[in-house]
């Protein structure tokens, strides 16, 4: 069943790549640009994908491998699946740390995880077209007449990033493992600085081919700083302020 879902997702993604690539060529996007998008996106995805994989393995302790694998391949996300499974198991009087052996308990968790997650798919076909016409249309219309569209796009982007950066500075995670503290702020600062330095190097030495990889590389440097800090200054790295 899991293999079927994997194949389904891959075919669907390949379908969209082929259609987009074809249209990209028609509207004059260079092959180079689309190729760079493919390579940098694959590299970008690698570290977060490992985190998702680790969640699959953690959930597999209680639910076996198939259900978490499927759920985190279709619609699922790190935070939702754990919360959904935890809630279902606690309603059944169990916990996520013990193996589910009763088939009724297992199917209850499977139904809960799936029903809880399907709502966006019910909503999307009605919402996407309308939203793109109204919000997207309004932005692109004003783009034509002035710089306002650019600024709104940048502001929306900054708004998204701000939510995550604020969480790294002042947030609490649901499982208490990644609360804001010295480590999260250090990683944040190191990755920002690494990105700035790498971008400057690329511009100065005209390394345009490496430019798409500066972002994933900075991300890895940021993650590496967490390892170094934890290894050499474990007491300081453990400080959280919430």
């Amino acid at each position: 069943m899991a293999i079927f879902i994997v194949v389904f997702i891959v075919i669907q993604s390949v379908f969209f790549i082929v259609k987009s690539w074809k249209h990209g060529k028609e509207i004059g996007i260079s092959k180079e640009s689309m190729k760079n998008t493919i390579f940098s996106s694959a590299l970008f995805t690698f570290a977060p994908a490992i985190s998702i994989l680790v969640t699959v393995i953690v959930l597999a302790n209680s639910l076996g491998i198939v259900l978490p694998w499927i759920r985190l391949t279709v619609i699922g996300n790190l935070a939702y699946e754990t919360v959904a499974a935890e809630n279902a198991l606690s309603a059944l009087g169990g916990t996520i740390n013990s193996e589910v052996t009763d088939p009724v308990s297992f199917t209850t968790v499977a139904w809960a995880m799936n029903i809880g997650a399907i709502f966006p798919l019910l909503l999307l076909p009605f919402a996407v077209k309308k939203l793109q016409k109204t919000i997207g249309g309004a932005i692109s219309k004003s783009e034509k007449s002035s710089k306002i569209g650019d600024i709104i796009s940048a502001a929306a982007f900054i708004g998204i990033i701000s939510a995550f950066l604020s969480r790294s500075i002042a947030g609490l995670s649901s499982d208490g493992r990644t609360d804001a503290g010295v480590l999260s702020v250090t990683v944040l600062i190191v990755s920002v600085v690494a990105m700035i330095i790498l971008t400057k190097i690329c511009i100065k030495f005209k390394l345009s081919k490496i430019e798409p990889f500066t972002m994933p590389l900075s991300m890895f440097i940021g993650m590496g700083s967490a390892m170094i800090l934890t290894h050499f200054l474990p007491d300081i790295a453990a400080i959280v302020w919430r």
Partner: peptide, 12 residues
Amino acid sequence: SAFENVLPALFG
């Protein structure tokens, strides 16, 4: 610690 801090690294 590296994998617990993917998000600050990514969004930073």
